[in-house]
């Protein structure tokens, strides 16, 4: 297995890239020239920060840059769901599930419940109706795991 730094080196990530990712995971200021403010904090020119972030976004190291929304605060809802897709139908099922715009993330996991996805909808009612439609479309039971309580959500990983 490749070491972390080998893998990072293969896509050309250096220490400054990692610092930029770490700082931008913490937040992005709401000011007229936010890149200038972040660049000053890191100690590099604004133009270099912009060029590096553009490259990180183009190469897919950064998958999203912008506001992260809380569906619940907008009257919407999130729900983690899981199903057991038979091996010989896995790709077909993945295609059906991913085809629903309400599916925000979908992961294949090593378990009898091998497909785990998050529904993000604009109303709580739409969670159930979407899960039912996925059950009808796949012929598989969709287990629903809505959050009952949320503990500190850092979301951040050390780059």
């Amino acid at each position: 297995m490749m070491s972390r730094h080998h893998l990072a080196a293969s896509i050309g990530l250096d220490d400054l890239d990692r610092r930029i990712i770490n700082v931008l995971q913490e937040g992005f200021p709401l000011v007229t020239s936010p890149f200038a403010a972040v660049a000053a904090k890191i100690g590099i020119p604004e133009s270099e920060l912009i060029a590096r972030l553009q490259r990180l976004a183009e190469t897919g190291v950064v998958t999203r840059f912008g506001p992260f929304l809380d569906a619940a605060a907008m009257g919407g809802a999130f729900c983690l769901c899981a199903l057991s897709a038979p091996a010989d139908r896995f790709e077909e099922i993945a295609g059906i599930v991913n085809g629903f715009p309400q599916v925000a993330h979908n992961y294949e996991r090593e378990h009898a419940l091998n497909m785990w996805f998050v529904l993000a909808t604009e109303s709580p009612e739409e969670i159930d109706s979407t899960a039912l439609r996925i059950e009808q479309a796949t012929g598989l039971a969709v287990l629903r795991f809505p959050k009952l309580e949320e503990f500190f959500i850092g979301f951040r990983v050390a780059a």
Partner: peptide, 16 residues
């Protein structure tokens, strides 16, 4: 709380 934060989400795999 409608916007939880503004920033980046890295691809964990790309970070190793």
């Amino acid at each position: 709380g409608v916007v939880r934060r503004i920033g980046v989400a890295p691809n964990h795999y790309a970070l190793g």
